[in-house]
């Protein structure tokens, strides 16, 4: 999957879970500060993303995923591993 494909699929998950407009889910956006995704919704996003992208995102890693770009980069690395 390309970076843009991952971003777009992740944007759909964020929209489904938190109601954020998918077009607003861009790489430079912070989940908490820009998109208003609270901590429990973030857990839901992570679990949906694990299934969608076939990766594992440990709980300890979630706190490092501050922006959409952080999450997309993590998923790309995990898919490549």
């Amino acid at each position: 999957m390309s970076t843009e494909e991952i971003r777009a699929a992740l944007a759909d998950i964020v929209n489904e879970v938190a109601g954020v407009d998918a077009d607003d889910v861009q790489l430079d956006k912070s989940f908490v500060d820009d998109l208003d995704v609270d901590s429990l919704s973030m857990v839901e996003v992570v679990v949906e993303a694990e299934e969608k992208f076939g990766v594992t995102i440990p709980d300890d890693e979630v706190k490092n995923l501050k922006t959409v770009g952080d999450a997309v980069a993590y998923i790309e690395r995990a898919q490549a591993a």
């Binding site: 429990l40 857990v43 839901e44 679990v47 694990e50 299934e51």
Partner: peptide
Amino acid sequence: EKGPRRVSPL
């Protein structure tokens, strides 16, 4: 069906 990870945090 899918394991404990799929239990909603809510």
